[in-house]
Computed example of a mutant assay.
Amino acid sequence: MPSSAQDRALAELIRQALVDDGVLAAGDFGVVISQRRQPIVITTDISGRHTVRVRPPIAPQRVVDFVRNKAAELERNAVKLATMAPRHPVKQLVDGEEFTWLGQSMRLYLTEQEGPARRVRHDDGWQLVVSAAAVRARGADVLTDWYCQEGLAWVERNAPSWWRRIAPGRRAQPGLDVRDLGKVRAGVFDELADQASFHWPLFQLPAALCEYVLVHELAHATRPPGKPHGPEFWARVKRVMPDGRRRQRLMRQAWLDIWTGATR
């Protein structure tokens, strides 16, 4: 078996051959020596960077020819992924900064009065009234806590009616939670804990899209047979939400532009 030094040398030869050929720009790709079944595999991540994985022994020119033949496809993949890349905004925690709740705009209003954050109606629209001292002490955590609290209240109000429709006469409704999932997905069902959890940024989206995520996780809670997102799963979603697939597409697109907690 080749040594790691030999692998590194081969990877550098292939990298340089690709750069010299001009098919891929230096810095836009990497070369990895792999023991995969296929001699050459190219993957593209969401930033548009390519990884060329090769199984030795292999001639650098063979890799160059393979990549050149795939150049148009690689460009299409990079462009497609670029449109899917998150564009999460960075917010300032100052008066007038815009946030959303269930798709409705609201402006941040910092008050010197103590007390929990609250959403109130104002002459020119909705305000999210937050203690300035709390923001100075805890930053964005004050707002994410508010989303968790209000999001959980929304889920607890809406889940029972959806659960009765999606699981009539079945087991009890699963537990519900809203928190920072630390992942890109909007919700997750923990089968062992029998709990559906939702990522707090979800509740910036319109209610129809939040309903889709709620139904999605409740469908998992019915424990349909087959694959996690197989035919039986989707049959249960569509039974109560015929436009579930459409809402899923809209949710995924909208998710790219929601605030996930970054501030400046």
Score class of each variant (00 low, 15 high):
residue 117 A to F: 02
residue 222 T to P: 02
residue 192 L to Q: 14
residue 98 E to A: 14
residue 123 D to F: 09
residue 48 G to M: 11
residue 70 K to N: 10
residue 161 S to K: 10
residue 223 R to V: 12
residue 263 T to D: 01
residue 152 L to E: 13
residue 205 L to I: 03
residue 130 V to W: 00
residue 150 E to H: 14
residue 87 R to V: 14
residue 201 P to F: 02
residue 119 R to W: 02
residue 205 L to N: 01
residue 210 C to A: 15
residue 160 P to K: 13
residue 10 L to R: 06
residue 134 A to Q: 09
residue 263 T to A: 04
residue 237 V to D: 00
residue 30 G to H: 08
residue 182 G to S: 09
residue 146 W to V: 03
residue 8 R to N: 13
residue 261 G to D: 11
residue 113 Q to S: 12
residue 255 W to P: 00
residue 209 L to C: 05
residue 106 M to T: 03
residue 87 R to E: 11
residue 25 A to D: 13
residue 87 R to T: 14
residue 8 R to Q: 15
residue 66 F to H: 15
residue 243 D to A: 09
residue 137 A to K: 15
residue 94 V to D: 08
residue 178 V to R: 01
residue 131 S to Y: 03
residue 78 A to S: 14
residue 105 S to I: 08
residue 197 S to C: 07
residue 97 E to H: 07
residue 117 A to M: 04
residue 43 T to G: 11
residue 197 S to R: 11
residue 123 D to L: 13
residue 47 S to E: 13
residue 109 Y to V: 15
residue 9 A to M: 12
residue 137 A to N: 11
residue 122 H to L: 05
residue 140 A to K: 07
residue 220 H to T: 08
residue 208 A to P: 02
residue 199 H to L: 05
residue 50 H to I: 00
residue 128 L to H: 02
residue 229 H to I: 10
residue 204 Q to T: 10
residue 22 G to T: 04
residue 2 P to K: 05
residue 151 G to Q: 02
residue 24 L to A: 01
residue 214 L to H: 01
residue 219 A to Q: 02
residue 112 E to V: 03
residue 142 V to T: 13
residue 39 P to K: 11
residue 98 E to M: 08
residue 25 A to M: 09
residue 239 R to L: 12
residue 84 M to K: 15
residue 188 V to C: 08
residue 95 D to K: 10
residue 234 W to H: 11
residue 225 P to H: 07
residue 118 R to A: 12
residue 259 W to N: 03
residue 115 G to Q: 12
residue 34 S to N: 09
residue 10 L to Y: 08
residue 50 H to T: 01
residue 105 S to C: 06
residue 45 D to S: 03
residue 93 L to N: 09
residue 160 P to I: 09
residue 220 H to P: 08
residue 190 D to M: 04
residue 75 E to D: 14
residue 108 L to S: 09
residue 228 P to S: 07
residue 49 R to L: 11
residue 202 L to T: 01
residue 146 W to L: 03
residue 237 V to G: 01
residue 167 A to K: 00
residue 127 Q to A: 11
residue 72 A to V: 15
residue 138 R to W: 10
residue 251 M to Y: 06
residue 229 H to V: 09
residue 226 G to D: 08
residue 75 E to S: 09
residue 187 G to K: 04
